[in-house]
């Protein structure tokens, strides 16, 4: 599988995300936790971005802010020309609904719904969704559409989660440790589907991982340390998921 070079893509006039001085402070009991300490960033549209860094360095906090799940304590965050920091609760939900696909470490599928119905959960409410079965076909699970999560392996469940995320044809895919609970073979299978989504749907993909090997498939890598992006790494020639050393 070939992974597109960002240079091959149509040049984008604007970044997918742009942030200025993002701060997030959590109040836990009597202590303040500074999860993000004034992050400035730009994420080019259509890229695959990997966030690397130790636990508590701010990766997940940033992902939650990007996905409209949480609000920064200060600073401004834009998705294209939409200012996320200016949205109310309803606006945030609308934003998630139309633009964001989430993938989590623990899949978060509805145990009472079949694979296809889990995907339909999103296509039921999306504006321009693809067909649920088509989305399952994209992750190679069309034949397991009638299986319940309990009847699927971990890798299959995660692929259903990916199908659910891409079925709405989102602008952005946000993945928090998507392969954290998987072995290498199934993990690579999942990463391939993410790469496919990035390539074929043109979605901007942001992946949090502890697995440094995965970073090699990214166009860009943010290295987090103590609530800041310590270093940005740009890959001119990202590798295919199949080439990843797990």
């Amino acid at each position: 599988m070939n992974v597109a070079n960002p240079a091959d893509r149509e040049p984008t006039a604007e970044p997918a995300f742009r942030a200025e001085g993002l701060r997030k402070v959590y109040q836990t009991g009597e202590t303040e936790v500074h999860a993000l300490r004034g992050v400035d960033l730009e994420i080019p549209a259509g890229e695959m971005l990997v966030l690397l860094g130790p636990s508590g360095s701010g990766k997940s906090t940033l992902l939650n802010l990007l996905g409209g799940l949480d609000r920064p304590t200060s600073g401004r965050l834009f998705y294209r020309d939409l200012e996320l920091t200016g949205l109310d609760e309803k606006g945030m939900t609308r934003f998630r609904r139309s633009e964001i696909g989430f993938i989590f470490q623990f899949y978060n599928l509805m145990p009472s719904l079949t694979a296809e119905e889990n995907v339909r959960l999103v296509t039921d409410i999306a504006a321009h969704p693809m067909d649920a079965v088509e989305a399952l076909a994209l992750v190679g699970l069309a034949d397991r559409r009638d299986h319940y999560p309990a009847q699927l392996s971990g890798g299959e469940q995660q692929r259903v989660a990916v199908a659910r995320a891409i079925a709405k044809q989102p602008g952005v895919l946000l993945c928090d440790e998507p392969t954290g609970a998987l072995d290498s073979t199934t993990g690579i299978r999942v990463l391939e589907t993410l790469a496919t989504a990035n390539r074929e749907l043109g979605a901007t993909v942001v992946v949090i991982t502890h697995n440094v090997g995965i970073a090699a498939m990214a166009d860009r890598v943010f290295h987090f340390l103590d609530g800041n992006i310590a270093r940005t790494e740009v890959h001119e020639h990202p590798i295919s998921p199949l080439e990843i050393s797990w």
Binding site: M110, P111, S112, L113, T114, E117, N118, R120, L121, D124, D146, Y148, P149, A150
Partner: peptide
């Protein structure tokens, strides 16, 4: 172990009645 759901009468009922995904839930 995760709760096991299988295709039974209720599930068929959902398909039959054209339930939404949340209706099926």
């Amino acid at each position: 172990p995760p709760p096991v759901y299988r295709t039974g009468l209720v599930e068929r009922l959902g398909a039959w009645g054209g339930f939404t995904a949340t209706g099926n839930m």
